[in-house]
């Protein structure tokens, strides 16, 4: 039997107890045509270096855990194949714009805090009880937000967004796309609550439409569209706020 093909992976390492900053380490990994980059990392951990640290779970682009920079592009490691980078070296680094905790593991607590602020859940427009039965809607109404509902919180869009890199207080693509998912739901009545997030400086106005977030999304969410669809409405609210006394700058909200 012939020797399996080999590829070189250059992996970013950072162990805070010994490293002052990230460094690169090379590994040579045998691969087959169906092996993903994630499987390459797993091979390293199992056979070459047990100290390599990375997140993963589902291996099929559903859980959103294994996001990292692969040759400079934000990717899910389970979603790209080693064969496409052969013979390497292919560079695997932690997701851009996030604090690195260890090797490829980033600290995503900032995103989780933002997610809590955007009210990304259904706030029923009419009061309902379980006795009212299923809260149904038409397929056409669902089509309005379906794409935005596909977000898996993998944070590739944050790694693609230079505005988030410059201004970490910007709510960011995924949080605002999930906000839009519920705003577009015809059963929802939480618009006014979400306007505060949208209209804030860290809301949609933090986006300058670089557009790379939508290019890297592995689920076709298009956060750039979700964000920029809100700018006309937000600008109108701002202008009307100056016109109408008592409505200025959201004074009437709650």
């Amino acid at each position: 039997m012939s020797e399996p093909a080999k590829i070189t992976l250059e992996v970013q390492r950072y162990h805070p107890e010994q490293d002052s900053g990230p460094r690169w380490q090379r590994y040579t990994v045998p691969y087959t045509a169906e092996m993903s980059v994630l499987e390459g990392l797993q091979y390293i951990k199992d056979h070459l270096d047990g100290s390599l640290t990375f997140r993963w779970s589902c291996r099929m682009a559903i859980c959103g855990s294994c996001g990292c920079m692969i040759d400079g592009e934000p990717e899910l490691a389970c979603h790209v194949f080693l064969r496409d980078y052969a013979p390497g070296p292919v560079r695997v680094a932690a997701l851009d714009h996030f604090p690195i905790q260890r090797d490829l593991v980033i600290d995503h607590s900032d995103f989780l805090e933002k997610l809590e602020t955007v009210h990304s859940y259904l706030i029923p427009a009419e009061e309902r009880t379980p006795a009212d039965g299923t809260h149904r809607q038409t397929p056409q109404a669902m089509a309005d937000y379906y794409d935005y509902a596909q977000c898996i919180n993998c944070l590739l869009c944050y790694a693609a967004c230079p505005q988030y890199g410059w201004h970490p207080d910007f709510a960011g693509p995924a949080a605002l796309a999930l906000l839009q998912r519920y705003n577009l739901d015809d059963r929802d009545g939480g618009h006014r609550l979400r306007e505060r997030v949208i209209d804030a400086e860290q809301g949609v106005w933090g986006c300058t439409l670089v557009g790379y977030c939508s290019e890297v999304c592995p689920k076709g969410v298009d956060p750039a569209r979700a964000i920029n669809q809100n700018k006309a409405g937000s600008a109108a609210r701002y202008l009307l706020g100056w016109w109408r006394p008592g409505r200025r700058r959201g004074e009437d909200r709650e």
Partner: peptide
């Protein structure tokens, strides 16, 4: 908690053609 490493934005526009296209558009 052990210290985290915070990456810098230095040379950010060199990292991807999408950033350079954006700068060209805005420029």
């Amino acid at each position: 908690r052990p210290p985290v490493y915070r990456p810098s934005m230095r040379g950010w526009w060199q990292r991807h053609p999408a950033y350079r296209r954006y700068l060209l558009r805005e420029g």
